[in-house]
Every structure is written in structure tokens, then in C-alpha cells.
């Protein structure tokens, strides 16, 4: 298979991160979980839900980019993943036209 080496130029990326790197990401994720539980105990009125969701989004970005390797992956995977996120967001916004602005 070595004679095909020149063909995969486009798929090469920097070296895989090691054990230590992933463990650091994990510590970050655990810390964010602790934070979100702690914040939930404090009454912040209308900010509680957006804040909890913001933390969830940060956590999911960490999982997506590092554990799921999107940051190091082919452009195809990046575009697909972003597109999927955009579609879900759009559907929720469009559903919001009906759900939030109740007319009936």
C-alpha cells in the first residue's frame, strides 16, 4: 500500500494527541459539570436556562472537537457536522414561530 502514499496527502493531519491531552479535556468536562450543577442551585431568574444550555454547548463542543476528533478531521466531516447543527437550530427557530408567538 506504500505506493499510494502520495495519494493521501490531503488526509494527513498533525500527530494524534496523546493520553495526557485527552485527560485534560476530561478534567475540563467534569469541572463544567460541577459548575452547571452549582449554578442550578442559585436562583438567577430568566438566565438560569440559557446559562445551563450555554454550558451544555461548551461541553458538547469539547466532546465534538476533541473526543470525536472533528477538529483534526477532513473538511468533509467538519462541513457535515456544522450543517447538521445549523439544520437543527433552524428547525427550532421555525418551530418557535408557532410555539412562542401563540396566536390561538
Amino acid at each position: 500500500m506504500s505506493n499510494h502514499a502520495e495519494l493521501h496527502e490531503e488526509e494527513h493531519h498533525e500527530e494524534h494527541p496523546g493520553y495526557g491531552f485527552y485527560t485534560a479535556i476530561w478534567i475540563g468536562l467534569i469541572a463544567l459539570t460541577g459548575l452547571t450543577v452549582a449554578i442550578a442551585g442559585v436562583d438567577m431568574g430568566m438566565y438560569t436556562v440559557p446559562l445551563a444550555l450555554l454550558i451544555a454547548c461548551i461541553k458538547s463542543m469539547l466532546v465534538l472537537n476533541y473526543f470525536m476528533h472533528v477538529k483534526f478531521d477532513n473538511i468533509l466531516v467538519k462541513v457535515f457536522a456544522a450543517g447538521c447543527g445549523v439544520i437543527i437550530a433552524l428547525v427550532i427557530i421555525f418551530l418557535g414561530f408557532d410555539v412562542f408567538i401563540g396566536g390561538s
Binding site: A40, I55, A56, S60, L64, H69
Partner: peptide, 26 residues
Amino acid sequence: LENSGLYWHLVDLIWIFLFPLFYLLH
């Protein structure tokens, strides 16, 4: 193994959203 890993991370990812949406509404 990589693809199985992706599947497993997705399970994790969904829980990351389920947790605040159901448990942290106090």
C-alpha cells in the same frame, strides 16, 4: 473502533443536553 467511538461519544453528547433539561430545573 473509531466509528464505534463516534457512536459512543454521541450517546454522551445527548446526555450532556438531557441532564440540564430534565434534572437542573430547580
